[in-house]
Design a protein around this nucleic acid. Structure first.
Length: 301
DNA sequence: AGCGGTCAAGTTGAT
DNA sequence: ATCAACTTGACCGCT
């Protein structure tokens, strides 16, 4: 049985997440900043609850939470703690309600920190800021009961072996709140499954297998074998990603995502697995419902 | 109310 | 050298 996942936002549903810009906020004094952020974050906490309700009502068992749900949380000048907000208690309560709802209705949630979150960089400042970002997402994950914080390997910096060593060492030094949720995903230009699986095995970090990225950046190992290896890295329900290229696999940029999933792109060997598959498609909830409908056709007999 | 330039952060590869 | 892509368009000043 596949648990289908929706990523971050909606195409048609009137559920939106607000954001803030640093340029705008930095023109205000601190208490005005916190008041502005307070309203915005309350809105986002309520939107998350609505998103989880939509998922449950539509048979969608997984929702990826946008990293910007607490905008500028770790910004060097504008950053804040939830407790700094005028209604901090209420904000926390609303996120906890999301956590209760997702537990009661079995809607899995997770985070995917953005491209600036790197545990392989040679720059100590980049690593430190990344760990800050991961700590923030772990704190929020605690409130909302999210069990995954998924990142990529990052850059190669001209020497992939050294970068992988830094990645490994940084993972091993992470606090447990982060490490217990952290996962590694293959990307489409630097780190293939073959690069990351050894790190996952050594650290006990689960491997998020993105089959689209694997097709963009192959490593000589087939989808079936990689699926099996990925499954073994998980101590809970495995999480995989699927998407289709915008133009075609042979076009100039197959990395761009299409609106919907082209059914042949879904690996046959996944069909009978007990896994979560997050659908990375521009049509969002419409794409998830579309792909689900292909698997829910009434069976003969 | 609607338009459009702009938005914290790192790294890569296409142009 | 610039720029889009990456999990995602949304924000906000201007008219």
């Amino acid at each position: 049985m596949i648990r289908w996942g929706l990523c971050c936002i909606f195409k048609e549903q009137p559920i939106t997440f607000r954001r803030a810009t640093a340029a705008f906020l930095s023109k205000k004094n601190r208490s005005e900043q916190l008041r502005y952020l307070n309203g915005l974050v309350l809105h986002n906490a309520e939107a998350l609850y609505a998103a989880l309700c939509f998922c449950k009502d539509n048979g969608i068992g997984d929702f990826r939470i946008n990293s910007q749900i607490l905008p500028l949380k770790t910004h060097p000048e504008l950053g804040y703690a939830i407790g700094d907000l005028p209604d901090g208690q209420l904000v926390e309560e609303k996120f906890r309600m999301c956590g209760t709802y997702s537990r009661d209705h079995d809607v899995r949630t997770g985070f995917h920190p953005d491209q600036f979150t790197l545990l392989s960089s040679p720059r100590a400042d980049v690593t430190a800021k990344s760990i800050d970002e991961l700590a923030y997402q772990a704190e929020l994950a605690d409130l909302v009961n999210a069990d995954v914080i998924n990142i990529h390997g990052g850059g190669a910096y001209g020497d992939k072996a050294s970068a992988l060593e830094r990645l490994l060492r940084n993972i091993e030094n992470l606090p447990d709140a982060i490490r217990s949720r952290l996962t590694l995903e293959n990307d489409d230009r630097v780190y293939s499954p073959g690069d990351l699986l050894p790190v996952c095995l050594e650290t006990g970090i689960p491997f998020v297998y993105d089959v689209h990225h694997h097709r963009c950046l192959p490593d000589g190992v087939g989808i079936e074998e990689t699926t099996e290896l990925a499954m073994k890295t998980w101590n809970r329900e495995p999480l995989f990603h699927v998407s289709s290229p915008l133009a075609s696999w042979h076009g100039k940029n197959p990395r761009n995502h299409a609106d919907y999933i082209d059914l042949p792109d879904f690996p046959e060997c996944w069909i009978h697995l007990t896994i979560t598959v997050e659908v990375e498609a521009k049509a969002k909830e419409l794409a998830v419902k579309d792909v689900m409908s292909h698997f829910l056709k009434p069976r003969i007999i």
